[in-house]
Design a protein around this nucleic acid. Structure first.
Lengths: 252, 252
DNA sequence: CGGCGATTCAAACGCATGTTTCAATTGCGT
DNA sequence: ACGCAATTGAAACATGCGTTTGAATCGCCG
């Protein structure tokens, strides 16, 4: 059987199709992302992969094993699609880096096509976790959040308490993940937002503006801690989207 | 059978226990709120209600019927627990009313005990809807959001476009629902927030401050549209929580 | 070519679930 | 006390699920 990987030299693929195991992972990514771990059925995955139901147990030891493989594999891809320096190049301002982060975060699950699967799976793990959360995904989420928390702390300055930083980080994250977790209610309660769902730039712009104001308000008195930062009408005119330097990373 | 309600005069309850149908609804509220509609099992509900498995089909025609009854019943209760004028009394400022709204919104699902069931069910319907969303709950959510949207528009002033209002409304809602939808990741990525989870007042204060700054930033130039609103250090000193007038409603 | 491990396949298994069945019980009206 | 509809109860049913099984197939390697 196949449960001990690499026990043979993993000979070159049988000519015909690509490895069924790879097709299983690909199909599973989409099905899991759409229906969630519990909602997805291995029969559905196998149908979509053109494989036999027994295949998932043969190759991955079960539904859960396949799921973890999908997560691991998606993580690898996401690391190249949305690289670690997802902010911008070197000496960008906090605001620029923050915008890059928000944009990449949004793209992770709003992107069309299979690239968004991993992001959507992460989002799903946030809402109702599976055993794979702590096994595979928690570390990634924590890293992600610490990155954001660092930027938030930078804006807040040294006077901010840890609790303040986390509250503000949560406020930013909340605004972003809203567009995944509340997607079903957007057509029903926010019909005006259906259009922007495809416009990640506009979304990122709004969340950045809204958040920067929220963050700056938090610092005790004067001195915004970094950059003199004119009160309003900062570097970027309202609404005139500026894709500036944040294009060092792209999505597929 | 019982499917045509009221076909008899609904005689007074059999002396002993309260109507099993009522106990079913109560138990189901908690089980559904904890496990979701799909995750909950009627066997589990019936065990917790001390009833026979057949009872739910007899009284409600099935799991889905019971679920809808739980939603309807919870809606009635929530209307009295978190009344329509959930902001404050008459002529409160937008900021005060907004704070009241945020606080009530948070309490709806963060409250301890059975009072939070309905709120948690609403939150769950947002993330993955059941057929009951459009049948029962969508209208309630829409009303809720329109109420918030009105306040947001009030802060933004007449110059704001509908899209702007909805983006900002989404930003506020996102911050609030974060504390439900992302609850599982809070211990893992926001350990500093575990404490505040019980302190709805502190949460509401932060979200209000953060959001007011975000909203004010959105208005084109000068004139915050309502109230002269001093730039910083407004009516409420940072951190000194002021429960002010927003106590006209309470949560059991 | 023949053997042999890796892989695929259809079928079936075991289990949990929502639902149904039908007999037993209950409590009220007469 | 009786009758009768409402309700309860234990058991069975039907379905969909993840998984297992064992035979059939494939493709390399000696």
């Amino acid at each position: 059987m196949r449960l001990n990987r690499r026990q043979t030299k993993d000979r070159v693929r049988r000519s015909a199709g690509p490895a069924t195991s790879a097709q299983l992972v690909a199909a599973a990514a989409e099905v899991f992302a759409s229906a969630g771990f519990r909602g997805a059925t291995v029969r559905d995955i196998c149908r979509q992969a053109g494989a036999n139901v027994a295949a998932v147990n043969y190759h991955f030891g079960g539904k859960e094993g396949l799921y973890e493989e999908v997560l691991r594999c998606g993580l690898r891809q996401a690391l190249s699609l949305f690289p670690a320096n997802r902010g911008t190049v070197g000496g960008a301002s906090v605001e620029q880096r923050l915008r890059g982060f928000i944009r990449a975060f949004l793209e992770r699950f709003l992107a069309t096509g299979p690239d968004a699967c991993h992001g959507r799976l992460l989002m799903r793990e946030m809402v109702d976790p599976t055993p794979a959360l702590d096994a595979v995904v928690a570390k990634e989420i924590r890293t992600w959040m610490e990155h954001l928390g660092g930027m938030v702390a930078e804006v807040l300055g040294d006077g901010a308490t840890a609790a303040q930083v986390q509250l503000c980080t949560a406020s930013v994250v909340g605004q972003v993940v809203f567009y995944h977790h509340c997607r079903p209610v957007i057509p029903r309660a926010f019909p005006g937002l259906e259009g922007v769902l495809g416009d990640v730039e506009a979304l990122a712009d709004h969340i950045l503006r809204f958040s920067m104001a929220g963050l700056r308000q938090e610092v005790p008195l004067e001195k915004p801690a970094v950059e003199p930062a004119p009160r309003r009408k900062t570097t970027r005119g309202r609404g005139s989207r500026t894709k500036q330097a944040s294009d060092s990373e792209s999505i597929s």
